[in-house]
Design a protein around this nucleic acid. Structure first.
Lengths: 344, 344
DNA sequence: GGGTCTTGTTTTACCGGTCAAAGAAGCCCT
DNA sequence: AGGGCTTCTTTGACCGGTAAAACAAGACCC
């Protein structure tokens, strides 16, 4: 920068003014400076700028993994929003490894990010106090644990109303006349199941625990097994609620294997299927989560909080999912869908 | 830091020595400094350190997307290797948007990363000259375009031998006695197909273009359609090669739908299925790519090149995939698998 | 008992920018 | 022509560390 200044016959500060554009510079001077910049191939050093301004224009994002489509999408959405605001993304996948997460958190406590987003309850709740003294805003998002009653205190939270998502799914099946239903769930998705159950309770139908089948693993295979178990256990079942996309896709294939057609014999409603139904034969009816909105709000809270740290609104923001119709749900068959067709 | 120094009755430099541990400090002094650090809650400022040392301990990674399992895994592997070496990950997903990538590249040209990894030919070849003048090492990895003949010049390349992967798959099917085979491929996977074809040519069997079915989209649905098309077009087909995991999983389901069992009537070999076969009914026979190795070598080349910029070895490193047996392949049926069972 | 090592600590300068205040032109106006 | 305004440019300090050389103080040595 000094070389550029010399060559253009001005001071460093004037070069800085030209580069940042924050202070007006006379056209003639600016031209000289720009020429010098071009001739010398000068590129400003962002690290130095960060040191001087106190802002790195980088935001940290912690997710449990990017191998789950939910988080992969979230990462890209966050990146999009950050890009709009001229920020970069520092990513840490914690793999649910608390120790690992702790190390990374420790690595950030010095001002190397402008803000930190922690997505997904990752068993990090225990480490949150570590962040209490952070000198930058920390926002929790996509936080399912603690819902529907309480969320961690002391940090802004931007998350999804998973309970409402489950409720939407339940409501939808009820509206279609389904009364004998089962749930395929991942162990971590209790909140979604709770919402689903609430919908049925409101409809005067109690959903027994035996109707909830946990998938041992969040894989296609796990979904197949859970679905097969569910349909065998209650042959009169006319609809399934799957708490995530892969389980739902597996449920559809399991039904086909058992000789049931979807949605004629069996309806399947998913929670958080990818909008395009990448994993399934045809687009599924699914509760769709406003991930993009969540990403935007999380970033806005995080970066907005920079300006007004004290006034940061700590009431959790719960974004509402929507039900998007696909072709995997239909009216309950007159005489209990799976009853007669399932081969035991 | 100055406050800490004052409180401990030493200079900044001594505090620095204690914190970095690079220079020995007398135990008594060190204790005083550590106490002062603890009392004041001092945390070193990494930005300032970066400015002084010229190293940010951050590595940039460009991938087309993290929604594809291949890249999601790669990102996590890279992160693991970086963590071992005490570096952080700055992620940019380009979404195959050249303009976007260009902007991000421009944002990095100042020394905000120690090195840059560009994974996946992303139509970025045109932008590479932009990086020719970069002041940090740039390594290309997972670069499929240009194989098997040539790879971009001027940058170190650490990539996978996709051609060999296809060859392994072909060799395997030949060994099992399959002669009438078809390929389900993504348009971008020409190299894998070429390797597969070479294996058959070496076996004296020409694979006609009509045996290669492109999936319109890299989805389950796209795979189903391509598989169905393949099996209808050549009813005598006894084996399929699918160039990526989702296509392969779809192929298995398509076969079932057509009344074929896998592997009795139809063998399916995948390229780059996730090791655990997350998407399929059972683990598929698949060419497995040494992603972790690739990540490690890419990072090592990138960070190693820091020390010896001139001696950087520019010969492309091609890592060899392996064939991992699952239960989706078996000997070719005596009388052409799909021939009699496929309903047209 | 003065050179020569070690070892630990300080000095001085620098990394490459930005900020805020002060200074210098140029313009307008009465 | 001189005072008051703008508008642009320079000055000097600072962001928070690290590098390298200089310095002090014992320990060792013959």
């Amino acid at each position: 920068m000094r070389d550029v200044a010399e060559r253009a016959g001005v001071t460093k500060q004037t070069v800085s003014n030209v580069v940042t554009g924050r202070v007006p510079v006379r056209p003639a001077t600016e031209a000289r400076v720009r020429d010098a910049i071009a001739e010398l191939g000068y590129v400003p050093n962002l690290v130095a700028r960060s040191l001087a301004t106190g802002s790195t224009r980088t935001v940290g994002l912690f997710v449990p993994t990017v191998r789950a489509p939910f988080y992969a999408e979230l990462v890209e959405h966050v990146e999009d929003v950050l890009e709009e605001r001229g920020h970069r993304l520092l990513l840490c996948t914690t793999r649910l490894d608390g120790e690992r997460a702790r190390r990374h958190l420790a690595g950030l406590t010095s001002r190397s990010v402008d803000a930190l987003l922690i997505a997904g309850d990752q068993g990090l709740t225990g480490h949150l106090p570590l962040l209490a003294g952070a000198r930058f805003p920390v926002v929790l998002c996509a936080w399912e644990a603690g819902l529907p009653d309480g969320l961690p205190d002391g940090f802004p939270v931007v998350t999804l109303d998973y309970e409402h998502g489950g409720h939407l799914a339940g409501r939808h099946l009820l509206d279609l006349g389904h009364e004998r239903v089962a749930v395929l769930a991942s162990p971590a998705h209790g909140v979604r199941v709770a919402g689903f159950r609430r919908a049925f309770e409101e409809g005067g139908i109690a959903l027994p625990d035996s109707a909830v089948h946990l998938a041992a693993e969040p894989t296609f295979r796990g979904g197949l097994e859970a679905a097969a178990a569910a349909l065998r256990a209650a042959p009169g079942t006319t609809a399934l609620f799957a708490t995530h996309d892969l389980l739902a896709a597996a449920a559809v294939e399991a039904a086909r294997t058992l000789g049931l057609s979807v949605p004629e014999d069996l309806s399947v409603v998913a929670h958080d299927d990818t909008p395009e139904g990448l994993l399934s034969r045809s687009p599924l009816t699914s509760v769709v989560l406003p991930k993009r909105d969540m990403a935007r709000q999380a970033v806005e809270v995080a970066l907005g909080a920079l300006d007004a740290p004290a006034s940061a609104d700590l009431r959790p923001r719960l974004l509402r999912p929507e039900l998007v119709l696909g072709d995997s749900t239909g009216r309950a068959p007159a005489h209990g869908g799976a009853r007669r067709t399932v081969r035991p």
